[in-house]
Simulated scan of single mutants.
Amino acid sequence: MTNNFDEIFRFIKIIFVVLVLFVTIHLSLNYSQPKNSEVLLKMLQYVYMSVLVFLIVSEILRVQIVRAKLLNEEWWPIVSDQGKIIGSIQHLTSLSDKNKYIHPVVRVMIIDKGMILLQKRTVNNIVDSGMWDTSISNHVKTGENIEQCVDRTSKEHYSLEGFKYMHLSNYTLEVSNEFQYVFLFVSCQLIDLTPNLKFIDQAKWWTQQQIEENLQSGIFPENFKIEYDLLKRSGLLETGKCECSCRLKETIYNQARNN
């Protein structure tokens, strides 16, 4: 909103300056050349109207170009400590700002027979590049809800459509450039995955023993350590299935009742 007011004020100042110049020249001509002032004033009016039209057209074109550029940029919602949206910001601006904002993030842990599917992040990734992390992870974009973000990310990263997942927990974590308000989900479907190498360097199934042996080696981000602990305490890794008898569903049911 502030940027909109700044743009309007800037345009008004330009028009005001042009108007002041027109009035000044108009008075000068009347004073210095009263005999020829009528012809000169008509010429001045044509020039003034031409300049005014040019300014209006150029401003409209400039605004359209800026809007088109903004539409191509990725914006992230800013949320409160409780996860309520209170604003939005261009994502590169947020990551370079000295103030750390809280952004909503979705993460989905995919498990099968006691194993967890992990992705190795590409070296070009903004966050935790080159590390082994939860298989589906992404920032929510401005204008989309949590489910849409999960569906978009699963399709982009693994060509998955319509796969099922359940809510496990929410938590907030401070990372290098931001605070993340994480919506954590889990999926335990048997599915064929095709990693998109544009977003993921590789995907690999890890056993609990392999994870435990490397948990303090520095190859996992802090997010995954938190989520691995939550997953172990849920009991889902023990059962290896998403059924009503699973302790995970009991946990989710109890959370819903308490909320």
Rank of each mutant, 00 (worst) to 15 (best):
N99S: 05
N99A: 05
K100D: 00
Y101V: 00
Y101P: 01
Y101N: 02
I102R: 04
H103W: 08
V105Q: 00
R107D: 01
R107H: 02
V108Q: 03
I110W: 07
I111W: 06
D112F: 08
D112Y: 10
M115A: 11
M115K: 12
M115Q: 13
M115S: 09
I116Y: 08
L117W: 06
L117Y: 10
L117I: 05
L118A: 07
L118G: 06
Q119E: 07
Q119G: 04
K120S: 04
K120C: 03
K120P: 03
R121D: 01
R121W: 01
I126L: 02
V127R: 07
D128H: 06
S129G: 03
S129R: 01
G130L: 10
D133K: 02
T134W: 00
T134L: 01
I136P: 01
I136L: 04
K141L: 07
K141T: 10
T142R: 12
T142S: 12
T142G: 06
E144T: 11
E144D: 09
N145S: 12
I146V: 11
I146D: 02
E147R: 15
E147A: 13
V150T: 13
V150G: 09
D151M: 15
R152V: 06
S154Q: 13
S154C: 13
K155Y: 14
Y158N: 12
E161R: 15
Y165D: 11
Y165A: 09
Y165Q: 12
M166G: 10
M166E: 13
Y171R: 02
Y171D: 00
Y171G: 01
L173P: 05
E174N: 08
V175E: 10
V175S: 08
V175P: 08
S176L: 12
N177E: 01
E178A: 02
F179P: 00
Q180R: 10
Q180F: 03
Y181T: 09
V182D: 01
F183W: 13
F183A: 12
V186W: 11
S187M: 14
C188K: 09
Q189A: 09
L190F: 12
D192I: 14
L193G: 09
F199C: 02
D201N: 14
D201E: 15
Q202M: 13
Q202V: 12
A203R: 13
W205M: 08
W205L: 07
